[in-house]
């Protein structure tokens, strides 16, 4: 997200990958385990307009610091030294722009190997680079994603090329989109002064919790006790917490107040945004006695407004 804010990116919906991509690179991503259907639906065996034979019409490259179960689906595996993604991408950008790095290898990858890969990208009908947590969570973090996007933009001067993040958690793209149209920012928004302010690090949840700054938490359909670093999650145990969730989770077990709600896409219809930002209608398939998740929130807001009004009057 921050990398997008720094410079943008060449992107597309996943159908473009299905219909046209003849070169697919996975970088720091292990789709065989993290996104098992990605390969069959979009990026590997999927058949499309220019790829009538599916897998046979695509060349697939895997770039990672160690072999993963995805290797067996790839035509080529490039292993790089841990923590050297940025250096390797820098060298690839140089090669794309017509500059040869003055060295034999970078991050344990021979320059010739990178040269071949860059040439493949330049020759592709549509090249796509998917990148995952293996690159976004290692040294350099959002700057690694930035380097991917910059490589994509450099490559766009030579061929049709896309750079797409492999996103995980259910509808994280939807919450990012909604936050963005309501506040201008996709996450790390602080309303403390009566309007949205944005500053990752200063206002992002993990950092706030690590610094022990919040004195209460309202958690909606998230699982911080499982997903956040220990020192951040631990602060939640020391402050009042209200959790809205359809299921019992580590977070509901810890919470002071749990409000069970309907499960979006299971017991209540709704909209979820796919990783390529396409909104998908979610249907309700089961009955549930609980309210929709926006109902308790609306009630809480109405009550707070009423209290504020009373306070202002007295």
């Amino acid at each position: 997200m921050v990398a997008l804010q720094l410079g943008g990116a060449p992107a597309a919906t996943l159908g473009e990958v299905k219909n046209r991509a003849d070169l697919v690179i996975f970088w720091g991503s292990n789709p065989a385990e993290s996104h098992p259907r990605h390969f069959t639906r979009y990026s590997g065996s999927a058949k499309g307009r220019m790829n009538p034979r599916g897998r046979k019409d695509r060349y697939i490259v895997l770039v990672d610091i160690r072999p993963t179960p995805s290797v067996k689906y790839a035509d080529e595996f490039i292993q790089i030294k841990p923590g050297h993604d940025y250096e390797v991408l820098t060298a690839m950008r140089m090669l794309t722009n017509g500059n040869r790095p003055d060295m034999d290898s970078v991050g344990d990858v021979a320059i010739q190997t990178l040269e071949r890969l860059v040439q493949r990208c330049k020759d592709a009908r549509l090249g796509v680079l998917f990148f995952g947590q293996g690159i976004t969570e290692t040294r350099g973090k959002h700057q690694n994603s930035m380097a991917i996007y910059q490589f994509g933009k450099d490559m766009s001067r030579h061929s049709k090329f896309l750079t797409l993040p492999m996103r995980g958690h259910y509808n994280v793209v939807g919450s990012g989109n909604t936050m963005c149209w309501q506040t201008g920012y996709p996450f790390a928004v602080n309303f403390g002064r009566g309007y949205p302010q944005f500053n990752p690090g200063e206002f992002s949840v993990v950092d706030l919790l690590k610094r022990k700054e919040p004195d209460a938490a309202l958690i909606v359909a998230a699982e911080p006790m499982d997903h956040l670093p220990y020192e951040a999650a631990r602060h939640l145990e020391n402050i009042p917490t209200i959790v809205l969730d359809p299921r019992e989770t580590l977070t509901t077990k810890m919470a002071d107040v749990v409000i069970p709600v309907k499960h979006a896409g299971v017991s209540v219809e709704g909209t979820a945004y796919r990783m390529d930002h396409i909104p998908i209608k979610m249907r309700s398939v089961l009955n549930s006695p609980w309210p929709k998740d926006d109902e308790p929130l609306s009630t809480i807001i109405a009550r707070i407004k009423a209290i504020r009004k009373e306070e202002a009057e007295t």
């Binding site: 997200m1 997008l4 804010q5 943008g8 990012g176 989109n177 963005c180 149209w181 309501q182 506040t183 201008g184 920012y185 996709p186 309303f191 002064r193 009566g194 309007y195 949205p196 944005f198």
Partner: peptide, 27 residues
């Protein structure tokens, strides 16, 4: 929304605040 997303610097200097009597704040 991509235009909003890609340019946080476009929002940093202008806002609509709850303090000014608007129902919903924004940038």
């Amino acid at each position: 929304n991509f235009a909003r997303l890609m340019r946080p610097e476009d929002h940093r200097y202008e806002h609509v605040s709850r303090e000014d009597g608007y129902e919903r704040s924004g940038t």
